[in-house]
Design a protein around this nucleic acid. Sequence first.
DNA 1: ATGGTTGGTATCCAA
Length: 263
Amino acid sequence: MKLIATFNTNSIRARQGLISKWLKSRDCHLLCIQETKVQDKDFPVSTFEELGYHTYFKGQKSYNGVAIISKEPLKEVSFGFDDGQDTEEDLARLIRAQWDGFYIINVYVPQGRALDHPNFTKKLLWYDRLLECLERAYKPTMPIFIMGDFNCAPEPIDVYAPERKKDHVCFNESVREAFKRLLGWGLVDCFRAFDPSPNKYTFYDYRVPKAVQRGLGWRIDHILATEVALGHVKECYIDLEPRLWERPSDHTFLCAKVKSGAY
DNA sequence: ATGGTTGGTATCCAA
């Protein structure tokens, strides 16, 4: 059994200590990271090499940035949708690779800012481009994990006070529909496949006092799996403990225990 | 309705 996980770091340099401690204590095989907020020349490669991990990354100054940290070397690593329209930002928001017989797609979906902001249009378009990318380059019968920060709480159970969040960029009808269209291609929400209970969140806003204790969170980080990939998953859970460690992120580690060898 | 915090970079923007 191998542990795979996704984590929005909100700066990988600020979170090196926390990530190292987590990788070691959990014996993680593959970690997908979002919001590294660092240019490639400044990525802390040696921190993870010293722990025996391979790192693959692309980032921008201050914003965005994705990475995969893996015990085994990855194959076929690429960035962006490869739809002929990739901007530098797109490359810093999507990394794809092959790992242990699985296709891994690590995404950092644009947050969107506000419903009437151009960034929200870009967010919906981003979901469309992701779906087109799947239709073009993959099949629902393949063993695929799409994991990362989707900036979408799919159902009312996935956010506190859903009745008050209908105009939020991470919960309004249009983004939830875009998310559902993605699932409609042939993907399952891994966490919900294992745990139907409420008050299970992956993100707690820094600005909300005692958010974890008060249950004021969002489930916006996800591991989506095709049916055949889900068949290899034995467990899927949110690891909240690092929130008690030094310099926690506002996101949590979302984990899956996977039986290896999908080919 | 508003504001609260954090990080990277500047002294404000994004989340």
